[in-house]
Simulated assay, not measured.
Amino acid sequence: MASSCSRRLNPEGTWQWAKLNALQEELQPFGLVILGFPCNQFGKQEPGENSEILPTLKHVRPGGGFVPNFQLFEKGDVNGEKEQKVYTFLKNSCPPTSELLGSPNRLFWEPMKVHDIRWNFEKFLVGPDGKPIMRWYHRTTVSNVKMDILAYMRQQAALGVRGK
């Protein structure tokens, strides 16, 4: 699973960090790997250097000694001319999460496209074969994401049993 993550000045996303840690811990034995991609394109909420990301998570937001138990990549663009290729692939493989893009004065990239990431913590599920399965709106709860992942895993297990 890939997630566009940012954390500064984003109380909406703060609660997701601990929930993503819990999801990683619970489903890792079944092959789930969460990947986080910090980005500064949404409200300029990730302005610092890469070296500041983990200390800020630990001491500021969410704080309390928080350390992610999943891989965080270096900060990069998920939309626009300089978007990371993985996001070009993911966004073109799954339909957008909303018809609305958002307030242009809080979005920092050009050109804006219909498949763009709408805000921090938008998530994608990628199957073990590397094919994107689904995409979630940034406000989708991690518990709903978990239910979808479990349903996908059950479906794949059932297909594996039938295929033998």
Rank of each mutant, 00 (worst) to 15 (best):
E81N: 13
D116R: 03
R118W: 04
E122F: 08
Q45V: 12
N120H: 09
W17D: 00
P11E: 07
M153R: 12
G76Q: 11
N79Q: 03
Y137L: 06
L159N: 06
G48Q: 05
K85Q: 09
L54N: 00
G13V: 05
E26H: 14
F108G: 01
K91T: 03
G65M: 06
V161A: 15
A157C: 09
G13D: 01
N40R: 04
K82D: 13
D116C: 05
S6C: 13
H59D: 14
L27C: 03
G36T: 12
R139V: 11
T14W: 01
S103D: 15
E81Y: 10
M112C: 11
K113F: 06
M1C: 09
D77S: 13
L90R: 05
L72S: 09
A22W: 01
G63H: 13
A151S: 14
V161R: 14
L125G: 06
L23P: 09
N10H: 10
N21L: 01
E74W: 04
R106M: 12
C5M: 11
C94P: 02
R154I: 15
L54W: 01
W136S: 05
F66R: 06
K123N: 02
G163K: 08
V161F: 13
P132W: 07
S6G: 15
A158Q: 12
R135E: 04
A2L: 12
K123P: 03
I149H: 12
K113Q: 15
F37W: 10
F89M: 07
L9E: 02
D77N: 14
G130H: 09
N120D: 04
R61P: 07
R162D: 05
F124W: 07
P132S: 09
F70M: 08
N120V: 11
E26A: 15
H115D: 08
N144L: 09
E99S: 14
M147Y: 13
D129K: 04
V114I: 06
F70R: 08
I133W: 11
L72W: 08
F42V: 08
D148A: 14
I133R: 10
D148P: 03
